[in-house]
Design a protein around this nucleic acid. Structure first.
Lengths: 386, 386
DNA sequence: TGCACTTTGGCAACACCGTTGCTTAAGTGG
DNA sequence: CCACTTAAGCAACGGTGTTGCCAAAGTGCA
């Protein structure tokens, strides 16, 4: 695959916090429109999409789309793939993303295990590695293990393939912009560890770091889950990833999605966080007591709060505790949310199990690298019109 | 004032829901950069800003800024206003927004009163009207009153001034995109009333409609309140307006900001909405009981939930109940939020009274019209870089 | 089979965007 | 008074999407 990124690299490189507000020059414009087309090709999947459909969807003229797709084909990112049936004239030529044109590695670091995946440009998993992990052994040991997994994975990929980067997802508060960990509960040694730079130096590849729930939500967003949704993860803790209007909401300090310590029962039982009546405490207490229906009701009420506050379309449930209980959580949460939406008179909100299963976080981590190519991550431009 | 909007009007007009994802052509690019410069001029206020500062802030070259500002000056939107002190060479020429180059009307319809303001391009109030109102008298009567207020206001403005539009803010769920009311609590006759089109037809002016809390939050965002903040309004009810990453978050159905019916005490006392333990019920009950400290604690806990979930920088408190209690709410909410942020290890979150007082909603409503000129409302483009 | 018609998509010329290179304007400081 | 510095405009340029036109590749009717 050839050069990604903003055209020839002129213009609009931006330092952090220098107050640049986003002036757009021609190379940036070209990059944006190309990313847009690439994203439409991606979401069209194997079915493909024709030049004229691209023109309709983007609002550009067919001729502009022809130029853009010609460049993408020259770069090897897109290819023609058959034709549609004629509707009385020349049949439309179908274009498709070339999956092998690019790859990325997604790394999911959890307290006790590591999952690494190699995905192609469409996000499909090409190879996978799992290994035990121990946060307790300290940062160096974990970086070692991660680097080893990535190297192994790259060996499994196509010959000569150079992935554009490695996306890493892990629990706990961290700084996505700088790639620095803030606190990993129970492992104070990790505090302030510059994971991104450490891993990037070790691998010689660009690295992006994000919270596990954010990565999972990003992956689901790119898989077309919904325009706006929340991914709720119930495992050893309770967290959330928020996608609002098509893009991941991290907040200024990557702190968004702190869902578990929402106070749901004012002056309720104490939580490990020091507050009282947090959803996480209530929900996990119910799970521990074997009352899964109550756990689902608690989670559903908190989800209802979130749905009402943000006006989202969908709630996706994941995490070991959820998957272990079959559809009990989905139905329980769904019932509470539906009741609330009914009272509020809003449109229906679907509650569903999160797609991707246990691998969702690692796949989402890979999308930390791929998403920018499709104009989806720091959203080089927003949506026009309206 | 001359033509606003996207350059010559070619390209990228976008129907609703046609799936247009935001392709950008040259006129749109020009419009975006012009809006960006205009926004910087606006936020610079009377102090003004030089061409080179504009270039630094936008990331464009000085020459591009010169061209853009030349066009803005030719259109009468900007003007030179003195020079800065020299730093060893030619002193910078200061540019300023011309306030009289454009106006907008903001209309705040409340259950019992109407507030209308005429603002200039900087958002400063030029004229104001207040009148009693009765939602109970039905839609036609309210439209009559609103149209009368707007006409009166336009008479008070500069001679020959034609405002580009009227922004209307009112309580209750509604559809911002279509300008249709959904439910006005206690006034079923309003259900489904197409307020935007009715008022636009009556006035012969474009009209935009939004929730009162959204309008207020938009106004504060443009006034530079913060990148991300929540405006909490405690009056006869409890609502919120959310600004995330510089732009107003409405949700797909203008339903975001449903803050009052967040469940804060699971299985708590029943609320009028049919649920139990809603913040609004708890908070207003405490107010009714004269226990304002408890009301502030309840509100603070709910605000803390919101701060944690969205990772916002600031909480602004407004509404009659808040203003009536002096700084009691600000301090009470501030204490709870600060404690929570301290535990979470996040950056400090400021809690402050909302600026603008009782007129904030009407001023924000006017910004529904002005904000698009500065690229701030449906954010024609997002932020580049990073 | 042939021909009119429809639809797709490329080629060439074009208008216009921001950029580059250079010049002029307007100050400071020795 | 003059060298130096900084700001801002003019002219030429590369490259964007657009427009006008034409070739390609089908359908459908005579």
């Amino acid at each position: 695959m050839t050069s990604y990124g903003n055209g020839n690299g002129r213009g609009n490189e931006r330092g952090k916090g220098d107050g640049n507000v986003g002036g757009v020059n021609l190379p940036a414009l070209r990059g944006h429109n190309a990313a847009l087309v690439l994203d439409l090709l991606r979401s069209a999947g194997e079915a493909g999409i024709s030049r004229l459909e691209l023109a309709e969807r983007t609002g550009l003229t067919p001729q502009a789309v022809s130029k853009i797709t010609a460049r993408l084909r020259a770069e090897g990112l897109a290819a023609e793939a058959g034709r549609r049936a004629s509707t009385g004239g020349k049949p439309r030529t179908v274009l498709r993303l070339v999956p092998e044109a690019g790859h990325a590695v997604g790394l999911h670091l959890d307290r006790d295990a590591l999952t690494a995946v190699l995905v192609d440009l469409t996000g499909a998993v090409v190879a996978e590695r799992r290994a035990p992990l121990a946060f307790a052994e300290g940062a160096d040991a974990v970086v070692d293990a991660a680097a080893g997994a990535v190297r192994g994975l790259l060996g499994a990929g196509p010959r000569g393939m150079v992935p554009p980067g490695v996306g890493v997802a892990l629990p706990g508060p961290l700084d996505h912009a700088r790639g620095v960990l803030r606190r990993v509960t129970g492992f104070p040694a990790w505090d302030g560890f510059p994971l991104r730079d450490a891993l990037a130096a070790r691998l010689g590849l660009p690295v992006a770091v994000d919270k596990d729930t954010n990565a999972a939500a990003l992956g689901m967003a790119l898989a077309g889950a919904a325009e706006s949704f929340a991914y709720l993860h119930l495992g050893t803790g309770l967290g959330a990833g928020l996608v609002l209007g098509g893009s991941l909401h991290r907040g200024a300090r990557t702190g968004a999605g702190e869902f578990g310590h929402q106070v749901l029962r004012l002056d309720g039982p104490p939580c490990a966080c020091g507050d009282r009546g947090c959803v996480e405490a209530l929900c996990l207490a119910a799970v521990a007591a074997g009352d899964l229906a109550e756990a689902a009701r608690v989670l559903g009420t908190a989800a209802g709060n979130l749905v009402g506050l943000l006006d989202i379309d969908r709630v996706l449930l994941g995490g070991r505790t959820v998957f272990a209980a079959g559809d009990l959580f989905v139905r329980g949460v769904g019932a509470v949310v539906a009741e609330r939406v009914r009272r509020g008179g809003g449109a229906e909100v679907s509650v569903a199990p999160a797609p991707g299963g246990e691998r969702a976080v690692a796949e989402g981590a890979a999308q930390l690298i791929l998403a920018p190519l499709f104009g989806r991550a720091p959203q080089p431009f927003g949506t026009l019109g309206d």
